[in-house]
């Protein structure tokens, strides 16, 4: 039996936007499963449906063995959620927040306390657990959010962008905590992210989602292998040249990715480069810039989504996060 299984799960919002389009997932028990995609790909909508916050328009899904529509309360009892937004109450201490959430799940006080103490230790929050959450740093708040989703010993944990807006150091620390939690609690974790390294570092398997659809599924290694060589990005002076080059390099599966650049595939570019540049030279074409990408999740993404995850996306997210934190601190 799968821990999470979806059949043609679809969500069309009232404004007509098809956020999730016939997604089929099969997630094994005890797996860390990554959902990778650019902003607006449908990751959060998928998570919201699987955690019963949204009703699917079509299709169905089972989480921890329960139907997300017909048995939504049972699903809620068995899943933990760490949403993108911060949810702890700033006017209460970390401990009070955790105990309150335990009561939502009818966990008896003694058991809740025992479980919380264990979790707090796991994410190194022991020194500040009795302080008001309003005094926490961004990283501490994220750690608290992480364990708030675990107080009732769920069988499936959903992490929606768990390290959004955190600095690199804090991020790798969070990864460590997530790995430890998975091992100690032996829990299924579903992780959404648009940080490639995050999904690469954490997940056993992943699906790349784009525009509401699953583009490809596999282990990080499988996906990297499936690329079958290097991806080379050639940038030209103008659009006309790029167009021309796309035509000439058809045998290398050339395709336009931006106005000025095209990507081609080559089993080993260090060998092929002379030939390729030679072909271009015949038509009086000379790329301004050549980028060679060794197989990585970046290239996988580039290959399957047709564009890379823009860097500034992460930056604007952390800016958004900072703004939110500032608003919260007021």
């Amino acid at each position: 039996m799968y821990s999470v299984e979806t059949y043609n799960l679809t969500k069309i919002y009232s404004n007509g936007v098809k956020a999730v389009d016939k997604i089929n997932l099969q997630i094994n028990e005890g797996e860390i499963y990554g959902l990778l995609g650019p902003n607006g790909a449908g990751k959060t909508t998928t998570i919201k449906m699987l955690t019963t916050a949204l009703k699917p328009t079509e299709g169905s899904a089972k989480v921890a063995g329960y139907d997300i529509v017909k048995e939504s309360m049972k699903v809620r009892m068995n899943v933990g959620i760490v949403p993108q937004d911060l949810t702890a109450d700033e006017d209460l201490t970390g401990m009070e927040n955790l105990l309150m959430v335990s009561k939502f799940y009818n966990v008896p006080y003694g058991k809740a306390k025992e479980n919380i103490d264990k979790l707090v230790k796991l994410v190194d929050l022991r020194d500040s657990i009795n302080k008001l959450v309003g005094q926490y740093s961004g990283g501490m708040r994220r750690r608290l959010e992480l364990i708030m989703g675990l107080v009732h010993n769920p069988r499936v944990l959903f992490l929606d962008e768990p390290t959004l807006g955190l600095d690199v150091q804090t991020r790798s620390l969070m990864w460590e905590y997530i790995r430890n939690i998975q091992q100690i609690e032996n829990i299924t974790i579903i992780l959404t992210s648009h940080y490639l390294e995050e999904v690469d570092a954490l997940s056993n398997r992943l699906s790349i989602i784009n525009k509401g659809k699953i583009v490809v599924t596999g282990t990080p290694e499988e996906l990297k292998k499936s690329i079958g060589g290097d991806i080379v990005v050639l940038t030209f002076k103008n659009g006309k040249e790029a167009l021309q080059a796309t035509d000439i390099l058809k045998t290398y599966k050339a395709s336009r990715i931006t106005e000025l650049s095209i990507k081609i595939k080559s089993s080993d570019f260090s060998k092929d480069s002379q030939t390729i540049l030679g072909i271009l030279k015949e038509s009086n074409l000379e790329p301004l810039r050549i980028q060679v990408e060794k197989p990585s999740l970046d290239t996988v993404f580039l290959e399957y989504v047709g564009r890379s995850l823009p860097d500034e996306e992460g930056d604007s997210d952390s800016r958004k996060m900072m703004l939110m934190m500032r608003r919260l601190r007021k």
Binding site: T51, T52, A53, M73, R76, M77, I81, P83, D85, L86, T87, A88, D89, V101, F104, Y105, M148
Partner: peptide, 10 residues
């Protein structure tokens, strides 16, 4: 944010 947590709880 807390409302999100409450709504996700049973």
């Amino acid at each position: 944010g807390p409302l999100g947590r409450f709504l996700a709880s049973p």
